[in-house]
Simulated scan of single mutants.
Amino acid sequence: MTTVGLLYPGHSAEDDYRRFEVLLDTDIRLPVLHTDIGEDAHRVDALLRMGSAERLQARVAELRLEGAESVVWACTSGSFVYGWEGAHEQIRSLALAAGLPASSTSFAFVHALRRLGLQRVAVAATYPQDVTALFSAFLKASGAEVVADRASGIVTAAEVGTWGRDEVLELARAGDHPEAEAVLLPDTALHTAAYLSELEHALGKPVLTANQVTVWEGLRLAERRAWGPGLGTLFARPDRP
């Protein structure tokens, strides 16, 4: 049994993780522990409060009770908003408090791109423009090249959580760029688990989404390789000789 603990702010698209459990190996568990979201707003001051050490550490004892082998702060905007160094410090403090390997969705994107050998990306974000720009800056600090970024101007996670297939596909298409090797959808409030294959088919390239890379990152930290049908290039089984 491999257990990855997920700290998820509020309630929006956490049911994506249950889909990942079903489609991945049967001995993988992804318990979701909800953190205090505070004010539901894609605004820098609100996001800084959402990702504070106090809020993240409030539920670490429950992670141990769940038998977690790793923990991921399943929130992109509540991590990259701290900047490259600040996001590292956020994860260091979480790892120390939990006594577990820790990461965040922001770093999950970085590590997934490196694993796939991809550098040029397009960002298709639900966020307002200023928050989207901070994610692009974070990616650039990692060494990635952001060839385009598109902001949708959605202020609340609650609204993003109501988006379905048509809105997700339109977001990805609108954010794509001919020079991009991959398209990134960075919001963990966005349901994407059911559409990963369709997204990649529509765009003809890898598509990395927030909840997808969050699961992959937690498994990476737990030193567990896993593959799943319909979960995109990141979870595709390697070709066998």
Rank of each mutant, 00 (worst) to 15 (best):
G164R: 10
E85G: 03
G5E: 03
L63P: 01
R224V: 13
V146T: 08
A61M: 09
L118R: 02
S77H: 10
H42I: 04
T35W: 04
G83D: 11
A189Q: 00
S93Q: 15
L139Q: 14
A98V: 05
A46F: 07
T188A: 14
T3S: 06
Y127G: 03
H111K: 09
R59M: 10
L118S: 01
L7E: 02
F80M: 10
R237N: 05
G86W: 13
D40G: 12
V60T: 14
Q57N: 15
L134Y: 04
R225Q: 14
V22G: 02
T2R: 03
L48H: 08
V72T: 01
T162P: 01
L190K: 00
V147I: 15
G153N: 09
G117R: 10
L208Q: 04
T2H: 08
L23R: 15
E181Q: 15
G204N: 07
D166M: 03
A180W: 10
A74K: 03
V168K: 00
D15E: 11
Q57S: 12
T35V: 15
L118G: 05
S52E: 14
Y8L: 03
A151L: 09
A124E: 01
G67L: 04
G51P: 13
H111R: 13
S77D: 08
E181K: 14
V110I: 12
T162E: 08
A112L: 00
G5I: 02
E198V: 02
L100F: 01
H111Y: 11
L196A: 04
V71Q: 06
R220D: 12
V121N: 07
H34W: 02
A222G: 08
G161R: 04
F20V: 11
V147T: 12
A98E: 02
G5D: 05
A193N: 01
T2L: 08
Y82A: 13
Q119D: 04
S142H: 15
V183W: 03
A236D: 09
L65T: 13
A182P: 13
F20P: 08
F138A: 10
E54W: 08
G175W: 00
E200M: 10
L184T: 06
L196R: 06
E170N: 13
W163G: 00
T209Q: 05
L113V: 12
H177A: 15
S12I: 02
V131W: 03
A74V: 06
D45H: 03
G86P: 05
E39R: 11
Q129A: 15
S104D: 11
A236Y: 02
H201W: 07
P186S: 05
H201E: 15
R240H: 11
G117H: 11
A108C: 07
L234N: 04
H177Q: 10
E69H: 00
H34F: 11
R165H: 14
G228K: 02
R150A: 11
V213N: 06
V60F: 01
A182F: 02
L234Y: 05
R19C: 01
D130H: 15
A58P: 09
T162K: 10
C75V: 08
S52M: 11
A98K: 00
E69Y: 00
L24Q: 07
L30R: 08
R64T: 13
L118C: 05
P206S: 11
E62P: 00
D166R: 09
R64Y: 07
W227S: 15
D166Y: 01
E167D: 14
T105R: 13
T188F: 12
Y195E: 05
T162W: 01
A222V: 10
G232H: 07
R225G: 09
A97C: 10
